[in-house]
Design a protein around this nucleic acid. Structure first.
Lengths: 173, 173, 173, 173
DNA sequence: AATGAATGAGTATTCATTCAT
DNA sequence: AATGAATGAATACTCATTCAT
């Protein structure tokens, strides 16, 4: 892992653990084991560091989802709830950024885009059953998943999460 | 409105508009039209100012809900979605605080408590239909509402909100 | 002398000795014996500190000139060359600021204004002898004085200065 | 033009436009289209880069003046005022360096030397008319020219410059 | 000759908090 | 209760310079 990757990893970890504003470039560099200045060799400023961090994360998460062979609600829920448990803090970071009023628009665009892709995916999967209402249903499903995500990241309880996954699986299959 | 109330109102407004970390005591005092020092006469520190601000907000919102005569899903949804539209920024602030990893535990407790009351309310309303599953159903409903809230505060669209309210009303009545 | 005045004096001294860009707020505060932060209590930023510094200096110099009873070339030259010798570094600072391409426009305006007042003064004094050419003559005289100033601030030689004063006095009286 | 020359040209341009302290090695290299490191292959440090830059500039200006066939006030003024109009920013840079208290002594020596040559030239041209006062007269003439230079570089007005050139030409021929 | 990663000291500015008045 | 001067630590960012390749 080269220094640039070390910085990105350190940034992701600290942003996720403490929040964007609460994480200083100094701390990121220290944890990465490099000098503060090097951060600015590789990234124009703190905002770009955040943008690239989130870009990488989304790319990685999306590509993991794309590896699923047969995409249906069952496999999607399995993949999603597993990811929620293994990437809890990163997902919390994404939620924070989406909601925070001062998140740079480039980051908002990335997260918005990911959300739209999810709604479209759901919409397709719900088309047979709900016809012209499939988009509304997809939005409600996404809302429910978002709410479950909030609940889990703020109060992680794997058992309760499992129950909710079962509920959703039953309902949408 | 006395000075203490002016400070609290200014704090709520600015925290809601810009976020807690992004709002300085100086700006709060300036907008309230008082001196920086006075803030520390009335509140031990910035954290306590936040705590009292949120405490007041929750108390006010709860008491508004309590004024509803016949509490059922119809009246609740009406009240909730109206509030979401008139207090968008404040509700966004609450969401941020719930999710943020460094929110003081006292504030977390306040918000958690409010959430539990909601789950219990839903649970009661769902008891007849769902029996021993009513608590699970209540949590799913809360999740859906939270997700709708995220969607609205990040991308306020009254029409889309109305559609979702109708969907929920149809489903739970 | 209160802290604000101490900061202004320290700023003037250091700007004059080392230049504006070369003088840090840190050094100014240290020499004034106050904390760095206090500078920002009294001045919005470094640029404002410079502006006020120059404003005060010009006001003081102008008021000294106004105290001269009978304003003619003899008394003016006496006053000016005395000031050049006692305020050498401050006058050098003003020259630097006038010439530097990045001096804030507010400072430029202050210095420009002072220059125009001088040209007008000369113009009046030369009116009898030069009639419609008095303005041109005034500008040439100002140029000569500016050139003498450059020479003195870069290579202070009181004897040579005296010679030049005599030359000017002879010529313009 | 090889890389070293590209760096020198870029340095001259940027020093002249923005000032020495305000120009970073990075910007010089970028504008020259080379890497930061290459600057240090060709020049010991930023100070040496400045010294060589000024050295070249003075050499070039002097040699242009030397090309004048018959050196008298008329041809000199023509040449000088033309140069002032075509090299305004470079000449401003030289003025700044002469006056700035922290200009490296080697650069000061270069500029001082050029000034002395001018005084001597003037002195020679004025010898017939002013005899033992010719040196004083030469210094006054240089001062006037310096003052005109300040005025032009800070507020370039070709018409006003022409007027002053005529004035000087009339006076010294 | 040429690159660009890497450093460390420095810079302007902000801000929660204290305290004398 | 009310003010605002005062502090000190922290923050994002810059930059001359070095050095391995």
């Amino acid at each position: 892992m080269n220094n640039k990757e070390k910085i990105l990893l350190s940034a992701l970890t600290l942003f996720a653990k403490n929040g964007y504003t609460e994480t200083s470039i100094d701390k990121i560099a220290k944890q990465a084991g490099v000098s503060k200045g090097l951060t600015y060799t590789h990234f124009k400023n703190k905002e770009e560091l955040l943008t690239v961090t989130i870009e990488n994360t989304i790319t990685k998460m999306t590509s993991e989802m794309m590896e699923i062979q047969e995409l249906n609600f069952n496999t999607f829920f399995n993949s999603f709830f597993a990811s929620l448990q293994s990437n809890t803090e990163i997902i919390r970071l994404c939620l924070l950024l989406v909601i925070h009023p001062q998140t740079p628009s480039k980051v908002i665009a990335l997260l918005d885009n990911q959300k739209n892709e999810l709604v479209n995916l759901f919409s397709t999967l719900l088309e047979n059953e709900f016809r012209e209402n499939s988009h509304n249903e997809a939005e409600i499903l996404l809302a429910t998943i978002d709410g479950i995500t909030i609940d889990y990241v703020t109060n992680p309880n794997p058992l309760s999460l499992k129950t909710k996954q079962k509920y959703l699986t039953n309902k949408y299959i």
